[in-house]
Design a protein around this nucleic acid. Structure first.
Length: 488
RNA sequence: AGGGAUGUAGCUUAGUGGCCAGAGCACUUGGUUUGGGACCAAGAAGGCGUCCGUUCGAAUCGGACUAUCCCUACCA
């Protein structure tokens, strides 16, 4: 377990991998581009998942589950959709293996070829809309607000644990509405929900905005996004919410009879966040000593370590404190392992990102105090054992808040407004980060800027005042600055 | 998918044609320890990513494949 993390400033990518591995979050698997999510990593994901699920339900959504396999013909019903995903689909062609007639292991049984190939879902719009056709007949069936927790497969060429894996876990919401307005409201409601989750639970500040035509989801009318900034000053698309218009309803012929007894196509949204959020969480907060988990998402919020080793009266004090902490709704673990020394446990706790560590030793008990160490700032303080639970209860939200503030400050320092292409290049190649600049609104300009600088338009921000200016590339008039950055 | 690099034990790695592949960490056993990643001793563990070649002889040379990392490209 004695492992060191590569310094962030030396090799950011290696630092990231070290955190993921040394904190016990995930590992590469035997299958290309796939990862094994280990218990500690999965526990954090579960906390994120549970909170999101609660928020979906509070806004009237229900969960359901649709098949993993999608008939190939479904995928091609929406022209843009299939074009967007065709290049990264895993395809099932056979349903049986047989003993190799030439000896050795097993081979695909050629007689078991499927009449129609099945696609392992890269996303579920098509199979869900094919189902919605049967579910929706009347305006009384609407809105239909369904979410599914699932895994999807996108055969990506370049993969990176949590950030881009061939298979990933996510939730995908698919809603159907009677009117355009309702669908748009839903799209934005979820965008706000995502932003709230990112900021209040992950302590990861995000910028809400709409994607340009070039960056839009395949098959969407509008794609909204939340964009976060990582510690290497690159942007991460943390979640998307799509207004699909009537595209999928038309492709799958999903109509309903409205109150005026007229038939119309339904209006749709889809939205999702994935295990990529784990990557965002890691890259937003962690340092060279390991992971830092915001208290609201930490599987274990407080870890108690007996010093130098467990035994009465330390055990009694620890158990009493544990009960008090549990009564305050705090998750706590007491590390009685006698095989590991305290220093080892300290380092291990730091690697795993546990927000608060409590040390209880004989000397402390003589003074009726405990040692409280914060993971985020590394500050240690001595606290009277009476009332310690309350102290911790107050401390956790402070840590949560300070992590968020620190991330906001970092983003602030790495956000620049520029008015010329030269300045733009200087910032992109220098300190990086978010760049607000004027753009003439054309895809040609967007692509050209990307070719020149590798920075892309992350979004057209929503909370941004309009301002007359001229495009940094073409000089053509622009009414609003858009958000650029190099992205993951 | 294109370009570059790498692949030796769970991890980090030494070893560029020749006795049974060597080490540190981790692991097992015993003992001494325990206020920031303990120490001593003894042990177990790999046939060098895979396959095919060259060779009297291959971890070392060649080829193909595969995985990982970086740069393009693509995305949640």
């Amino acid at each position: 377990m004695a492992k060191a993390v590569t310094p962030r400033t030396q090799d950011y990518s290696q630092w990231y991998t070290d955190i993921v591995k040394n904190a016990g979050l995930a590992d590469h698997s035997a299958v290309r581009g796939c990862m094994v999510i280990k218990p500690h990593g999965f526990a954090i994901w579960e906390n994120m998942r549970d909170q999101l699920d609660k928020m979906f339900k509070e806004t009237g959504h229900v969960n359901a589950y649709f098949p993993l396999f999608i008939p190939k013909s479904f995928l091609s019903k929406e022209a843009e959709h299939v074009e967007g995903f065709a290049k990264e689909c895993a395809v099932v062609t056979h349903h049986r293996l047989m003993n190799d007639p030439n000896g050795g292991g097993v081979v695909v049984d050629p007689s078991a070829r499927l009449e129609e190939e099945l696609i392992v879902r890269p996303t579920s719009e098509t199979i869900i809309w094919n189902t919605y056709r049967d579910w929706i007949n009347s305006y009384r069936d609407l809105p239909l607000l369904i979410n599914q927790w699932a895994n999807v497969v996108r055969w990506e060429m370049r993969t990176r644990m949590f950030l881009r894996t061939a298979e990933f876990l996510w939730q995908e919401g698919h809603t159907a509405h009677a009117t355009l307005e309702e669908a748009k409201e839903e799209t934005l409601r979820i965008l706000d929900l995502y932003a709230t989750f990112a900021e209040e639970y992950m302590a990861m500040p995000v910028i809400k905005g709409v994607k340009t035509a070039n960056e839009r989801f395949a098959g969407a009318v509008d794609t909204y996004t939340i964009e976060a900034l990582m510690q290497d000053a690159r942007a991460l698309q943390a979640g998307t919410s799509h207004f699909l218009g009537q595209n999928f309803a038309k492709a799958f012929n999903v109509t309903f009879l409205n109150e005026n007894q007229k038939s119309d196509f339904v209006w749709a949204t889809s939205w999702g966040v994935s295990t990529r959020l784990m990557g965002g969480l890691i890259m937003t907060h962690s340092d060279d000593d390991g992971l830092i988990i915001p208290p609201k998402l930490a599987p274990t919020q407080v870890s108690i370590i007996p010093i130098p080793k467990p035994g009465s009266p330390i055990d009694e004090a620890a158990h009493k404190l544990m009960e008090e902490l549990k009564a305050e709704g705090i998750t706590v673990a007491y590390d009685r392992d006698t095989r590991k020394r305290p220093g080892f446990k300290f380092a291990e706790n730091e690697l795993k990102g546990i927000p608060v560590r409590i040390g209880i030793g004989k000397r402390d008990l003589e003074k009726s105090q405990i040692e409280v160490a914060r993971r985020d700032t590394k500050e240690k303080s001595f606290v009277p054992i009476d009332g310690a639970a309350r102290y911790i209860k107050d401390l956790l939200p402070q840590i949560q808040q300070q992590l968020f503030q620190k991330a906001v400050d970092f983003r602030q320092e790495h956000t620049t407004s520029v008015d010329s292409l030269d300045d733009f290049k200087d910032v992109v190649n220098g300190k990086g980060g978010f760049i607000y600049a004027h753009w003439d609104g054309t895809t040609e300009t967007e692509v050209k800027i990307k070719e020149l600088t590798k920075a892309t338009i992350r979004c057209i921000p929503m909370d941004q005042e309009s301002e007359d200016g001229s495009c940094i590339l073409t000089g053509k008039p622009s009414k609003q600055r858009v958000l650029f950055a190099k992205a993951y």
